[in-house]
Design a protein around this nucleic acid. Structure first.
Lengths: 171, 171
DNA sequence: CGGTATCCACATGGATACTG
DNA sequence: CAGTATCCATGTGGATACCG
């Protein structure tokens, strides 16, 4: 893939590149989705996703390597291997759902199935959204970027917020 | 990329593949992140991301093509072109943040900067999570998959929920 | 069953030069 | 400034055959 190049600004102190290192690729999310739907075995993924064997092998290895899934041979037949989501993998559920809901809203229009529901009342979950620290749902227009060093110091005052203009991206 | 293969099950009635068609790739998310941070011009993206010109050109075109960004020549100098997020693009913010927060939690440990804050009080937003329809925050263990046709019909009863076993994926 | 080994087609990505 | 054109290296992905 050629060589590496050094980034010119601080676009890198961000969790996004690190997340994309594993998940920034089509099949990783599809495999994750299948895992969340209860698939555990190589051949299950193979049939469900329509992915090539070598690619599936490669991606599963990568997911295991990054601690997103773990592989454990079954006690009865050591040849059978189960792939299971780790805590780290389970923590990707919000990201996966947000992406899926977005695709459902703007995509071909096929309603996603099955639907993730609250087991208390069986009702579908709410759209993944952005909430303030107090739980209030907030839209993109009510948000601003602040430098990490400023956060928590100046409550309610924008004067010393250098990144406020970046809010312009939101409109 | 070789040929296509037909999927074997209903893994496809899901918004995820449609979302990944555009965003299932490293640079798309990085460009989006830059756009949310207020970058608008080709050369700005170029310098900020450390991406090759041809790839940036290709990705921007794809984002525009999919209605995630729009390009508009500036009135004063028609050569200058501004890239701006559309509504559809803005709607990707939750997915982008969820991914970023996950990467921040499990990645190299670099705290992301800048931080997205509620403009009312300047406090950082809450972690992106899964909420029930009534707004209650719920964890992966309190969730179940239900067939779309069942949703809303049987409130509180699990008896006719065929996909309940799939919950096994969550542990 | 869960892979590995090949082979091939094409996509991705970087560097560089050129263009209107 | 915002690309396009070209070249080259590597990655991704599918098909198939083989293996313990």
């Amino acid at each position: 893939m050629g060589h590496l190049r050094e980034p010119l600004n601080d676009m890198q102190n961000c969790g996004l590149p690190s997340a994309l290192e594993v998940m920034g690729e089509r099949w990783s999310f599809m495999i994750l989705r299948a895992a969340f739907n209860g698939l555990h075995h190589f051949e299950e993924f193979l049939g469900a996703l329509g992915i090539a064997r070598n690619i599936l092998s490669n991606r599963l290895a990568r997911l295991v390597e990054h601690g997103i899934m773990k592989r454990e041979p079954l006690p009865d037949d050591r040849r059978k291997i189960e792939y299971r989501l780790t805590e780290k993998g389970l923590d990707l559920l919000p990201a996966m759902l947000a992406l899926r809901q977005w695709g459902e809203k703007y995509g071909a229009g096929v309603p996603s199935n099955p639907v993730l529901c609250d087991e208390r009342d069986g009702l579908p979950i709410a759209p993944i959204g952005i909430h303030a620290h107090d739980g209030r749902l907030i839209g993109p227009k009510e948000l601003e970027w602040r430098d990490a060093s400023e956060v928590g110091k100046t409550l309610g005052s924008y004067d010393d917020c250098e990144v406020k203009p970046q809010l312009s991206a939101l409109r």
